[in-house]
Amino acid sequence: MQTTWNQQLVKKENKSVVFNLIMNHSPISRADIAQKCGLNKGTVSSLVAELLEEQLIYESGPGESSGGRRPVMLLFNQGAGYSVGIDLGVNYILGVLTDLHGNIVITKNEKYINVSFEDTLNRVKSVISSLIDAVPPSPYGIVGIGIGAPGVVNKEGDILLAPNLGWKNVSLTAELENMFNVPVIVENEANAGAYGEKKFGIGQPFDDLIYVSAGIGIGTGIIINGELYKGINGYSGEFGHMTIDKNGMQCRCGNKGCWELYASEQSLLSKANEMNLGITNDVNLGEILLLAQSEEQAAIQLLEEVGKNLGLGIINIIHAFNPQQIIIGNRLAAARQWIEPQVRDIIGRFTLPFHQTDIKIDFSDLSLPSSALGVAAFSTENFLKSKLQMQ
């Protein structure tokens, strides 16, 4: 009998259901899969056979018996392939190599100065190459590369504007795909950070959260009903460029008085450069944090001012979205000791009372590279989706 288009579609959907059950409930038996998804045992066995052949799952020793023969257990083969995730900062490149479950195999963090697009691209290529060199033997090897970029990224992955990098209308996708011969996904780094926190970090228990990426600039990633919200063209979350002072300083984006001019790492460094903090080398966040830890009041006041300004912008986000959780991440999360009290004070004083109910203010775990993990997860999911849709 000829297989119809509808039958093919149903089979693909059923295969995805079976695979997701194995991935999320390993170890699990064929009988338990059939019971959970409502498919008959013959259909489940046929789909499992395909997944075994594709090496996306594997069999382990027998599980506990419920009265008959002990069942063979099925597990997700998280080592079947690996993804690369790159968090492209303004002054750093952070890369991770993950298995298909998001477990980090190796991390590479490199500081750099953005001299030109070409130089930065070459540095990104170098980091990716070093991560690929560390890939363990596997059936599929590298299945994809994800890049989180600090700017406006369209749905095609083009970076339309990255003001803090000085980039306009650039594309990383084609060049990286040609070099590494795997699919490349480019996403806004704050969106990637939000997804990373939701999938692997402190955002896991919440379905409505806003991730505030506070680095050289400020970006926000929005999770609504458990899904990343990107807007009609993919440009959502550019709260760093909302105006909080219409007569304020000129921003690199062309606007005036943008939030990130008052509440970012760059604003902190600019003000520190205007003061005599006793730093002999170039002023950097690490040096300011060391001074604050030594109870240098000027450094503490700078950090507290940034915290207050960060809180002022977050008020608008809370009033707009009424989220369950706000997560403050990226490099300024390292200054939590001095920033958090100011953020909470400002939110407590100026947010409408009923918007303060049931909201959590959290800071990213500094050991979790959420943006890099987020884009690696995008690449992994893209690979798995393509495999499950193949016939």
Rank of each mutant, 00 (worst) to 15 (best):
M1T: 11
Q2S: 11
Q2I: 14
Q7A: 12
Q7I: 09
K12M: 11
K12W: 09
K15A: 06
I22W: 02
I28E: 01
S29Q: 08
A31W: 09
C37D: 06
L39C: 08
N40K: 08
T43C: 09
S46L: 12
L47D: 02
V48Y: 00
E50A: 01
E50Y: 07
E50G: 07
E53K: 12
E54A: 13
Q55Y: 09
Y58G: 02
E59G: 08
E59R: 12
E64P: 10
G67H: 05
N77V: 06
Q78A: 14
L88P: 01
G89W: 03
I93E: 03
I93F: 05
L94T: 10
G95C: 07
G95Q: 05
L97D: 04
L100M: 14
T107R: 15
N109L: 14
K111H: 12
I113C: 10
N114T: 14
F117E: 07
T120C: 15
L121H: 09
R123W: 08
S129Q: 14
S130K: 10
I132D: 01
I132C: 08
S138G: 09
V143W: 05
V143P: 07
I147H: 02
V152L: 14
K155I: 09
D158E: 14
I159D: 06
P163K: 04
N164C: 07
G166Q: 07
W167C: 07
K168A: 14
N169I: 11
S171L: 05
L172A: 05
L172H: 04
E177I: 01
M179D: 12
F180I: 00
N181S: 14
P183C: 04
V184C: 01
I185S: 06
I185G: 02
V186Y: 02
V186N: 05
Y195Q: 07
G196S: 07
E197K: 01
K198R: 13
G203W: 04
P205V: 01
V212S: 08
A214Y: 04
T220E: 08
T220Q: 05
G226D: 07
Y229T: 00
I232Q: 11
G234W: 03
S236N: 05
S236R: 01
E238K: 04
G240F: 04
M242C: 11
M242F: 10
G248M: 06
C253S: 09
G257L: 05
C258G: 03
E265L: 11
Q266P: 00
N276E: 15
L277W: 05
T280Q: 14
D282E: 15
L285P: 08
G286C: 08
E287Q: 14
L289E: 08
L290D: 15
L290M: 12
A292T: 01
Q293A: 12
Q293G: 13
S294N: 15
A298V: 10
A299W: 00
E305A: 10
V306P: 03
L310A: 04
L312M: 13
H319T: 12
F321N: 08
F321H: 09
P323F: 04
Q325C: 14
Q325N: 10
I326A: 00
I326D: 02
I328D: 00
A334C: 09
E340D: 13
P341K: 02
R349M: 10
L352V: 11
H355L: 12
T357D: 15
T357I: 15
T357M: 13
I359P: 06
K360S: 13
D362G: 10
L366N: 11
P369R: 03
S370I: 06
L373A: 06
V375L: 00
V375T: 06
S379T: 06
T380I: 02
L388V: 02
Q391Y: 12
Q391M: 12
